[in-house]
Design a protein around this nucleic acid. Structure first.
Lengths: 194, 194
DNA sequence: GAATTTCAGACCATTTTATTCGATAAATAT
DNA sequence: ATATTTATCGAATAAAATGGTCTGAAATTC
C-alpha cells in the first residue's frame, strides 16, 4: 500500500464529515462521498460497511475531538471558577461547530440508530465526570459550597442540555450567549464562598 | 380568496428560494417546499406546473432584483468613473448572495434547462447595455478614452465573467476582492484621460 | 507468480421523488 | 340556497435515485 489503509479511511471520514455537515445525513449520498474521495462507490464499501457506518465514524470522531478540546480548555485554567465558566462557554461554543455530532445527539430522524445512544451516554458520562472533578476541587479549595458535588454535576450538565434547545432551534445566536453570561453570574454568586 | 393568489405564489417562491439556496436544485424536494409553505405537496402544483417552474420563478426573481439593485447602485453615483467602479464591485458583491441565480448561470447540471439560456442572454444584454451607457457618458465627459464603447462594454463584461470563476470556486473569499481593487486601478489608469 | 489489497463498473432491490388525479372544502357568484 | 369557481389535500403512480452487492481486474505484497 502506498498510503496506509487507516489513512484512506480517515480521508473518507473527513470528506464525509464535510458533506454530512453541509447537507445532513439523508441528503448525503454514497456517490457524493465516493466522488469527493476520488474513489469508486464500491471502494467506499471496502472501508466502511454502510452509510450509517461512515456516519458513526464521523460522529465518533467529532465527539472525541469535542471531549479532547473541552479537557484542554479546562486544564488551561487553574482555578475551579474559571474552569467551570470555561466549561460552560466553551461547550456551547464548540457544539455549534460540531454539526454532525450535534445533529446525532438531537435529531429524531437519526434517533433509531443504536450507536447514537451509546455515543450519547458515553459522552454524557465523560462530561459529568469532568464537571464533578471541577466541582470537587472547587469545594476542596473552598471556592464552592456544594453539599453533593456528584449530584450537582448531573444537575448542571442536565441544565446545560436544556439550554441547547433554544440555542440551536432559534437562529438568533449571540443573544443566548449574553443570557448565558448572566446565568453564569447568577450561578456563581449563588455558589461561590464569600 | 383571503389572500391574493399572487401572494401565495410569491410566498412559495420565497420559501423555495431559501431551500434552493441552501441545498441546490437537485437536493431540494417538492415535499420540503410544500412543508415550508405549510401546504400539501399537491397544492404546490396548483400554483406551479413543476419543480423546474418554481426554480425558474426563483431565478427570474433574483435576476430581476440584481438588475434593479445594480441600476440603483449606479444611479447613485454621478461621475462615470465611480459608476464603473461601483458596477464592478457591486456586481461581484451581489452575485455572491444570489446563489440560485448564480448557480443557474454557471452550473453544468442545470444547463439543459432552456430557460436558463434565456435568462442568461437577457441578463447579459442588460448588463452590456448598462456598461455601454456608462462608458459612452464617460467618453462624452472626456473621462474615458475609448474608440468603440460598444465593443469595450462587451469586453469588460466578458472579462468580469471570467473573474467569477476563481471567485466562486476558490473559497478563499476576500483575497479576490483585493485583487479586484488592483484590477480596477489598473483598468482605470489605462482608461482615464489624464 | 500466488495471494491479497484496492478499486471501478455493471447491476439490483428498494426507496424517493415529481407529478397526476379525483375528492372535498372554502369562497364567490347567481 | 344553490351552483360554480378556487384552493387544498391524500393517495396513487411511474420514473429516477440510491444504498448496497457482485465480478473481475490492476496494483501491491509476499
Amino acid at each position: 500500500m502506498v498510503v496506509l489503509k487507516d489513512q484512506v479511511r480517515d480521508d473518507i471520514i473527513n470528506v464525509a464529515a464535510k458533506i454530512f455537515t453541509r447537507f445532513g445525513y439523508k441528503k448525503t449520498t454514497m456517490e457524493e462521498i465516493a466522488m469527493a474521495s476520488r474513489k469508486g462507490k464500491s471502494s467506499i464499501y471496502y472501508y466502511f460497511s454502510s452509510k450509517e457506518d461512515i456516519f458513526r465514524a464521523v460522529v465518533e470522531k467529532e465527539a472525541e475531538e469535542l471531549r479532547k478540546d473541552l479537557k484542554v480548555a479546562i486544564n488551561e485554567m487553574d482555578n475551579p471558577i474559571s474552569q467551570l465558566k470555561n466549561f460552560i462557554l466553551f461547550r456551547i461554543q464548540k457544539l455549534k461547530t460540531l454539526n454532525n455530532f450535534h445533529a446525532a445527539l438531537k435529531s429524531d430522524h437519526l434517533a433509531h440508530f443504536e450507536f447514537i445512544e451509546n455515543i450519547r451516554k458515553e459522552y454524557d458520562r465523560d462530561e459529568i465526570e469532568l464537571v464533578t472533578r471541577i466541582l470537587k476541587i472547587g469545594v476542596e479549595k473552598e471556592k464552592f459550597v456544594i453539599d453533593d458535588p456528584d449530584l450537582a454535576a448531573v444537575a448542571l450538565v442536565t441544565a446545560l442540555k436544556g439550554l441547547e434547545i433554544p440555542l440551536f432551534i432559534n437562529k438568533k445566536h449571540g443573544r443566548i450567549e449574553d443570557r448565558l453570561e448572566n446565568l453564569i453570574q447568577f450561578l456563581f454568586y449563588g455558589l461561590i464562598k464569600r
